Lab assay of single mutants.
Amino acid sequence: SKDAAQYVYDEAQKGVTQVTVNGVTFKFDNWQKLLKYAQKLLN
Rank of each mutant, 00 (worst) to 15 (best):
Val21Lys: 13
Val16Leu: 10
Ala12Trp: 09
Thr20Gln: 08
Leu35Glu: 01
Lys2Asn: 10
Tyr9Lys: 02
Val16Pro: 12
Lys2Ala: 09
Lys40Pro: 01
Thr17Tyr: 09
Gln6Gly: 10
Ala5His: 04
Thr25Asp: 08
Lys2Ile: 06
Val19Ser: 04
Gly23Lys: 09
Gly15Arg: 02
Leu42Lys: 01
Ala38Gln: 00
Phe26Pro: 10
Gln39Arg: 04
Lys36Gly: 08
Lys33Arg: 06
Gln39Phe: 07
Lys33Cys: 11
Glu11Ala: 02
Trp31Ala: 00
Val21Glu: 13
Lys2Tyr: 03
Ala5Cys: 15
Ser1Asn: 11
Gln39Val: 03
Gln18Ile: 11
Gln32Lys: 04
Phe28Met: 07
Ala4Met: 03
Gln32Glu: 07
Lys27Thr: 08
Asn43Ile: 04
Asp3Met: 10
Val21His: 10
Thr25Phe: 14
Lys27Leu: 15
Gly15Tyr: 13
Asn30Lys: 07
Thr25Leu: 12
Ala4Leu: 08
Gly15Asp: 07
Leu35Thr: 00
Lys36Ser: 06
Gln13Lys: 09
Tyr9Gly: 14
Lys14Phe: 11
Lys14Leu: 10
Lys27Tyr: 14
Val24Thr: 02
Thr17Gln: 05
Asn43Phe: 05
Tyr9Glu: 14
Leu34Ser: 00
Gly15Lys: 10
Lys14Asn: 12
Gln13Ala: 10
Val24Gln: 08
Thr17Leu: 09
Gln18Asp: 03
Lys27Phe: 14
Val19Gln: 13
Gln39Ala: 05
Val19Ile: 12
Lys27Cys: 15
Tyr37Glu: 02
Phe26Arg: 08
Gln39Asn: 03
Ser1Trp: 14
Asp29Leu: 14
Phe26Ser: 02
Val24Phe: 07
Glu11Ile: 10
Ala12Tyr: 08
Leu41Asp: 00
Gly23Gln: 03
Ala38Ser: 01
Leu42Phe: 07
Leu35Lys: 00
Asn22Val: 15
Leu41Lys: 00
Asp29Ile: 14
Gln6Met: 02
Asp29Trp: 14
Lys2Asp: 10
Lys2Val: 14
Gln39Gly: 03
Thr17Asn: 06
Leu41Gln: 01
Val16Phe: 07
Lys27Ile: 15
Val19Asp: 04
Asp3Thr: 02
Leu42Thr: 01
Asp3Pro: 08
Gln32Asp: 04
Leu41Thr: 00
Thr17Glu: 06
Gln39Tyr: 13
Thr17Ile: 12
Gly23His: 07
Tyr7Lys: 13
Gln18Pro: 03
Val24Leu: 14
Tyr9Pro: 14
Phe26Ala: 09
Gly15Trp: 11
Lys27Asp: 14
